[in-house]
Nucleic acid binder design. Sequence first.
DNA 1: ATGGCTACGATCCGTAGA
Length: 258
Amino acid sequence: MRIATWNINSLKVRLPQVLDWIKARQPDVLCLQEIKLEDCNFPAAELEAAGYHCLVSGQKTYNGVAFLSRLPGSDVVRGIPEFADDQKRLIAASFGGVRILCAYFPNGQSVGSDKYEYKLRWIGALRDWLGHELQVHPRLVLAGDFNIAPEGRDVHDPTAWEGQVLFSEPERAAFRALEGLGLKDAFRLFEQPEKVFTWWDYRMMAFRRNMGLRIDHILLSEPLVPACKACFVDKEPRKAERPSDHAPVVADLELPQA
DNA sequence: ATGGCTACGATCCGTAGA
């Protein structure tokens, strides 16, 4: 099972790129963030024609998450249960015996801001819910745009970024708290090249200079770790004309027949 | 120099992203 996550920063703008990418990379489940459109405007017909089922939790202008999947998903949950939130940032469903959460973590704007406080509260609520969810679904994947670089090696210039939003200690602690539930960063299960990132600012020619951060992640519950055979960042779509500022992350799982 | 770009929904600039 190939699982991928990609913050596409507007599905309306990026639909042709998504269609090209799923054709080339053949994910079984693709988790999308920042679709930035309402459910009624989701381009389901084009994606279904490409062989994918769609599950959507969208809203106008901002946020919005979705699954594209080869097989239909079941037991769909939209939003973090018992966490009142108008922002569409989470969708969960089961695919072939694997529970997958597609999450768009809040950005946090700047350390100490209201949005930063919301970010930490949101992650806390996610963690509390995940504790229960893992009891019910031991085979679980948390994939998405975390808006957190977990370690110095995930930041092009850790000294400059230290304490800034996306790389502040409370955010890193929140990431470690998710790992504390038994989740493993799929990317770090394998030897990786240095300076692999998933996001580059549109400004300053940041991509060309590889001034990026690794803030998009795929976390696996313990029972799925032995099944994971590869995890990589696909930089190719970031080279396109009018790219998303994020690149997709891919994890390949070799699952026993259900 | 604390900016630079992109998307959106509203205009001809503000909000937000990260």
